[in-house]
Design a protein around this nucleic acid. Sequence first.
DNA 1: CATTTCATGCATGGATTGTGCATGATCATG
DNA 2: CATGATCATGCACAATCCATGCATGAAATG
Lengths: 157, 157
Amino acid sequence: MIEIDAFDLKMLAALQDDGRLTNQQLADLVGLSASQCSRRRMRLEEEKVISGYHADLAGEALDFGLIAFIHITLATHSPDNAKRFRELVNRVDDIQDAYALTGDADYLLKVILRDLKSLSDIINNVLMPHQSVAHVRSSIVLDRLKESAKLPLKTLG
Amino acid sequence: MIEIDAFDLKMLAALQDDGRLTNQQLADLVGLSASQCSRRRMRLEEEKVISGYHADLAGEALDFGLIAFIHITLATHSPDNAKRFRELVNRVDDIQDAYALTGDADYLLKVILRDLKSLSDIINNVLMPHQSVAHVRSSIVLDRLKESAKLPLKTLG
DNA sequence: CATTTCATGCATGGATTGTGCATGATCATG
DNA sequence: CATGATCATGCACAATCCATGCATGAAATG
């Protein structure tokens, strides 16, 4: 495993907050020179500790008003069936996140959509008819309390 | 609502994929000059269509090996109770996402943790004892099929 | 047609980036 | 203790990038 020191941690936390910080800004924040921050950042990127940088878009401003969670139970637990389902998940862009879970449901999907009609569409025309799927249960998001996508790095070092 | 044309959409999609794209790279991708991309990007940031830029960190490399979803039912639906619960959610860094849902459970939390002991901790020492909480049910993530955090912009324009 | 408005590309001074290089700290070994 | 190897660091600098002023041309307005 790659060695990560206190400087790296500070840099990671800072870049998690603002992914477009310049090396100089980073340097001022963590107490190193800009060149050193450049070198460390490149190392963290190469080692895939930083897997990428992304702009965070406001869904509301782009007419994505609806988030929903969909619990899926597969028809059978055969490898073939799981594979078919994974291909479905990868194909459908509306599915933002997908997890295999312990508990009563096999998979949990998070979808982001324009409206209830789109949700109805995806459930009735995409998920339900798919041969791998046995049961579907959806929950609509009424309110988004928190959506940080950040690792709680403070609990480290 | 802010006007968004095809150039903007292309830029947003590109920056969603790579938040550190240069104005020149952006220009090559969308077919404008770099200066124009700079201006458009600034506008999209000011209008909060782009709400921020974030480095995406690899949890595994930083010893965050466990993701879990926790369904919460509140003790009562009083405003006071909901407020107390929201404060709890905001205070606890391990809670990455939190949503109020339709359906049987009131809230869905996504937590990212080091191990099962941490999960046990947060359930038994943070959530269960809290006066606002009546019922807790957790599901552990066995596999992460997809975690894009991206809007499906292709379905637009 | 005349005027206004506005998005655009170009030019440019100032900031940013990555890399070569010398320095100093740390550490293992004789 | 002395020596040498290793490595992170800061500085210097050339290449690149950024934001802004400015002129142009297209579209809208009267």
